[in-house]
């Protein structure tokens, strides 16, 4: 017999090799690199925890950490809620449905960089059309990403505009995967539309919602391009997320070690949060089996 206990691993080998080369090795390199420092003339040395010590005494780092967490605390539930609402909206059969669905996923086709640039023009205080409109209807011009108070909210809005349609697709697929008969059973059991949503749809959407929340969190922790393009972390550090700090450390300050240390911290936080999210959204029927 050719088969042995190694056979399954043989079949998995290509996938495992891919995982190793493309995921685990870069992570190891990043974590390893966070323990190094480079002299001005390019000599690499082992620096132990120096990079981390530096960060922990850096007020910019702490303020950036706070902003990153705040940003994610708001944007992830928000995007999930908006995507869910949109999915429910286009799940109902109605005339012209394809049009609305297309409209909602259209922002996906615009690259993050370009959408940031477009929003920059759209929201601009002097040349942007939105402020003209706001003045016209009497609300008055808003500074948006140019003010310390509104910048983070503006970025959250842009990211949600871009992301909600994408996440909607997953939730829509989830909605379609709920058998129609379960809804019918609930109708016969006497459930109102709200009760069907609350007791049937919502709990049965746990898995797609968990996926969206976790994937979205992973993406939003690495949120970068609009910060880089629109605010450069400002005003007064209001949008200086950790990814931006990592970028700046590497490409402006030529401090790769510190950049990798920030990335490593980011990764650690992300792992913790994703585990918590999975816990939170684990279906009760799975806990027991």
């Amino acid at each position: 017999m050719i088969s042995s206990r190694w056979t399954p691993y043989l079949f998995l080998a290509p996938a495992l090799a891919g995982l190793l080369v493309f995921k685990l090795v870069p992570i190891a390199v990043a974590v390893g690199g966070s323990l190094t420092g480079m002299s001005l003339m390019g000599d690499l040395r082992f620096a132990g925890l120096e990079n981390f010590e530096y960060l922990f005494t850096d007020p910019e780092f702490w303020s950036s950490l706070k902003i990153t967490l705040l940003f994610n605390l708001i944007i992830n539930p928000l995007q999930l809620a908006v995507a869910f609402a949109l999915a429910l909206l286009v799940f109902q059969p109605m005339p012209g449905l394809w049009f609305f669905r297309t409209l909602l996923v259209l922002p996906m086709a615009v690259s993050t960089g370009i959408s940031a640039v477009l929003f920059g023009l759209f929201l601009d205080g002097n040349l942007g059309p939105l402020n003209g409109f706001l003045e016209w209807i009497g609300i008055g011009a808003q500074p948006f990403h140019r003010s310390q108070e509104q910048a983070l909210a503006t970025l959250i809005g842009i990211a949600t505009w871009k992301g909600a349609g994408y996440w909607m697709l997953f939730l829509l697929a989830g909605l379609y995967s709920i058998p129609a008969s379960v809804h019918e059973a609930a109708r016969i059991d006497g459930a109102s539309a709200w009760q069907r949503f609350r007791y049937v749809t919502l709990p049965m959407m746990r898995k797609p919602m968990a996926f969206v929340l976790v994937a979205d969190t992973a993406i939003n922790f690495l949120f970068f391009a609009p910060v880089y393009i629109l605010t450069s972390g400002g005003p007064s550090g209001a949008t200086s997320v950790l990814m931006f700090q990592a970028y700046r450390a590497a490409f402006t300050f030529s401090d790769i070690g510190r950049s990798l240390a920030i990335s490593t911290i980011l990764l650690a936080i992300l792992v913790v949060i994703v585990v918590l999210e999975f816990r939170l959204l684990r279906a009760p029927e799975e806990e027991r089996s």
């Binding site: 140019r146 003010s147 310390q148 450069s232 972390g233 400002g234 005003p235 007064s236 300050f253 030529s254």
Partner: peptide, 19 residues
């Protein structure tokens, strides 16, 4: 100078917007 410029530019921007 890169570091100097980076932080100073951000500061100028913030000052203009009222910080």
């Amino acid at each position: 100078y890169r570091e100097y410029e980076e932080f100073l530019r951000t500061a100028m921007q913030d000052i203009q917007t009222g910080a």
